[in-house]
């Protein structure tokens, strides 16, 4: 019964949606201090290659690889974040985009390590590793009425769902704290923030490193979900795609890029014919959004409106037993 409901293809699409949501969050974090970084595709690549190489060459457990990839991306985030502190807006975007290209070129040319443009294959697969582990422990998915590959994709989906929810919760809490206020103050008026006693260097580099870590984390997950990566996965296209999540969905609130990633990953799957024109549509989205709604679809006002609606509905439900007016 369960078997018919669980379709590996849908689960895989859902998993990629979740990875894209994490990438959307990564650009949002850096943006929440007013820094537009297009380096996140590069950080994603660092996370992916680090984890893939460690697990392939040294037989390290996937989780160790993912942690190492995340940390190394964070280190690169600090290394890029510090020298670019004085750059604003477009200049920062250009420099960080250039950094992403440098990283890609290194992946292509460091053939002895990365196998060049061909990419790395046979990377340990998160779901299959988990299947082997549970089988070693004497558990058979058939008990749940699941085939092996259903189990594999379901496990991946659930793991990604859990980490995505945790990441969003993490940054929502951070936003509503002293750190989040410092980020927002820097974004709104850097000089005033500094005059109010905020160490802007520290918080800007922190945001940069956090964005890099989240992107590196997404990259490492990507490597172990797909089991195959190549430099093209982390090229300019990816950087633009991540940017579009924020431009389309909005970057005022965390739900903006989350919605952007969700919508823009689902669309080409639902409307197959669209996917051929993907990048054309991205271009159109940028132009239209900049002209009509530069803050993106989801902003504070929309969020407040949704909250109001849902709280009204809840009230209605609460009083539905009484006589309605």
């Amino acid at each position: 019964m369960l078997a018919e409901l669980i379709n590996p293809y849908y689960l895989q699409v859902a998993s990629f949606i979740l990875i894209n949501i994490i990438l959307g969050v990564s650009i949002y974090i850096t943006l929440s201090t007013g820094q537009l970084s297009l380096a996140n595709a590069g950080f994603m690549g660092i996370g992916a290659y680090t984890s893939a190489l460690l697990t392939l060459n040294f037989d390290l457990p996937i989780i160790v690889g993912i942690m190492a990839g995340t940390l190394l991306a964070g280190v690169f985030g600090i290394l890029i974040g510090i020298p670019t502190l004085r750059l604003q807006g477009v200049y920062l975007a250009i420099v960080t985009l250039g950094f992403g290209e440098v990283i890609r070129v290194i992946f292509v040319n460091w053939e002895s390590m990365t196998k060049g443009a061909v990419g790395l294959s046979g990377i340990p697969h998160m779901g299959r590793e988990l299947l082997n582990t549970v089988k070693d422990l004497g558990f058979d998915p058939k008990v749940l009425g699941l085939q092996n590959n259903q189990f594999v994709f379901l496990a991946i989906f659930l793991i990604l769902l859990a980490v995505t929810v945790s990441i969003i919760a993490f940054f929502r809490r951070q936003n509503r704290s002293r750190v989040g206020r410092a980020f927002a103050a820097i974004k709104l008026d850097e000089k005033a923030a500094e005059s109010m006693g905020i160490n802007i260097t520290y918080y800007k580099v922190l945001a940069f490193a956090q964005g890099a870590m989240v992107a590196g984390f997404a990259g490492a997950l990507f490597a172990h979900v797909l089991a195959y990566i190549s430099p093209a996965d982390f090229a300019y296209h990816r950087a633009v795609e991540i940017l579009i999540f924020a431009v389309f969905g909005g970057s005022e609130v965390i739900w903006g890029p989350v919605f952007g990633a969700l919508f823009l990953t689902v669309m080409p799957e639902v409307l197959r014919f669209i996917s051929e024109y993907r990048y054309m549509i991205y271009g159109l989205i940028i132009i239209i959004m900049m002209a009509v709604r530069p803050q993106g679809l989801i902003d504070v006002n929309i969020l407040n409106w949704v909250k109001l609606k849902t709280s009204k509905r809840r009230q209605k439900h609460g009083t539905s037993s009484q006589k309605s007016m």
Binding site: R178, V179, R181, A182, A185, A193, M196, G197, I198
Partner: peptide
């Protein structure tokens, strides 16, 4: 925000 430098909570 003004109280930032008189408080210390981190990430």
């Amino acid at each position: 925000v003004g109280e930032h430098c008189r408080s210390k909570s981190g990430v």
